[in-house]
Nucleic acid binder design. Structure first.
Lengths: 187, 187
DNA sequence: GTACGATATATCGGGTCGATATATCCGGGT
DNA sequence: ACCCGGATATATCGACCCGATATATCGTAC
C-alpha cells in the first residue's frame, strides 16, 4: 500500500459515501473535489475498484438498464465506512503531502476537531520544512542562476509562504471558534 | 519518450551544461532549481544517465580519486547541447504542465524571446482552461459539499488566479522591456 | 440516418517511485 | 585511537501509476 494508493482509496471511499456511482462518474468527482489536480487515470481506477470489492470495502450493484451497456454502480459497505474513518482519523505523515492533504481536507467535515488540527498542523510543519530548504539555498551573490531561475525561486517561495499563512488561519479558526467560520456552509 | 522523461532529460542536460557533476549532486541541483517539487528518484536518475550516455548526449569522466569509491562525473556533449536546445526551443503543449513548465522556465536564460513568450502564453492558456473548469463547478446552492470542501475550492481557485496574474506580468515584461525587469540579475 | 462527442469499462507497456543494499568519507564524542 | 552516525555515492528491484488505446453505447444535431 503506497502513499498514492492510500490516498486514492480514501478519495474513492469518501466520494462513494456521499452517493453510490460508477467508475466514470467517480473519476469526474475526483477531478471536481481535488480541483483538476492530478486525478486518477482509468488504468488506476478500475483495477482499484475491483480490489476494493475483493476486500469487501465496496459492493457492485449491477444496473442492467435494458439493452444498455453494463454500468456497474459501486457503494460502500459498513466495512468500507470503517476503513474510511480509520484512514481519515489515523492520518499520519503521508497526509502532509500535497495531493493527500487535499483529499483529507476535502473530507474534514467527517473528522473531529482533534484530527483536523493534527492534519492541519502536520501539513503546516511539512510546508515549513520546505520553506526552510528554500531559504537555505536563497540565490546568493555570484550565483550562477540567471534572472529567470531567481524569479522562479521567488515565486515558489512566495507561494509556499502564502500556503503557510492559509494554514495558520485555518488552525486559528479551529482553535478558537470550533468549526464555525470555516465551515459556514455546513449543513 | 513520455512527458515526464522528456522533462527530466531537459533538466539533466540543462544542469550539466552549467557544470559537469555526478548523479548525487545532480539530484540535489534538481531539487534546488525546481524548489523541492517532485524531484527525480535515484531509481529514475541513474538508469536515465546511462541511457543518455548510450545516446551520446552526455559522457562519463571517471574520476578515480585514489582509494575513493568510483564517482562518475557526467558532462554534456555537443550532441547533448543540441538536444537541449531543440527540447527548449521546440517546446510544445507538454511544457505547459506544472513540473515541465518550471524546468523550462528555469532555463529561459538560454531561450530567445519568441520561445519564452510562446511557453509563457501556452502556460497561461493552460491555467485559464483549468480556471474555467474550476468556475464551471463552483459550489452552487444546495451543493452537498461542506464548508471544508468549499474552502478547498476557494483556495485552489485563488491560487490559480494568482498564477495567471503572475504569468500575465511576465508576458507584459517580455513584450515591453525585453528581458530587463525580470532578468535583472542576469550576468 | 449518420457522424460526432460524451459516457462507460477494460487492458497493456513503459516508466516512476520508494525502499533497500552496499560502500566510503568525515566529524564528534570519549 | 576508536566507534558511531550522517552525508556522500551508486545501483537495483518490486509495486504500481499514467497515458494511450480498444471497444461499445448513448444522445443529438445536421
Amino acid at each position: 500500500m503506497t502513499r498514492r494508493s492510500e490516498m486514492l482509496e480514501l478519495a474513492i471511499l469518501g466520494l462513494l459515501h456521499d452517493s453510490p456511482m460508477h467508475g466514470y462518474e467517480l473519476r469526474k468527482q475526483v477531478h471536481r473535489v481535488l480541483g483538476t489536480v492530478r486525478a486518477m487515470s482509468y488504468g488506476t481506477l478500475y483495477p482499484r475498484l475491483r480490489l476494493l470489492v475483493e476486500r469487501g470495502l465496496i459492493v457492485e450493484h449491477d444496473t442492467p438498464v435494458s439493452g444498455r451497456r453494463a454500468r456497474i454502480t459501486y457503494a460502500v459497505t459498513s466495512a468500507g465506512q470503517q476503513r474510511f474513518q480509520s484512514l481519515l482519523t489515523g492520518a499520519g505523515p503521508n497526509a502532509w503531502e500535497d495531493d493527500a492533504f487535499d483529499v483529507h481536507f476535502a473530507f474534514f467535515g467527517r473528522a473531529d476537531r482533534a484530527v483536523r488540527l493534527r492534519i492541519l498542523e502536520g501539513r503546516r510543519a511539512r510546508l515549513e520544512e520546505r520553506l526552510a530548504m528554500y531559504r537555505a539555498n536563497r540565490p546568493a551573490e555570484g550565483d550562477t542562476r540567471d534572472g529567470y531561475a531567481v524569479e522562479l525561486y521567488r515565486h515558489g517561495l512566495e507561494s509556499a509562504e502564502r500556503d503557510v499563512r492559509w494554514l495558520t488561519g485555518l488552525i486559528e479558526t479551529e482553535r478558537s471558534a470550533g468549526h464555525r467560520g470555516v465551515a459556514q456552509h455546513e449543513e
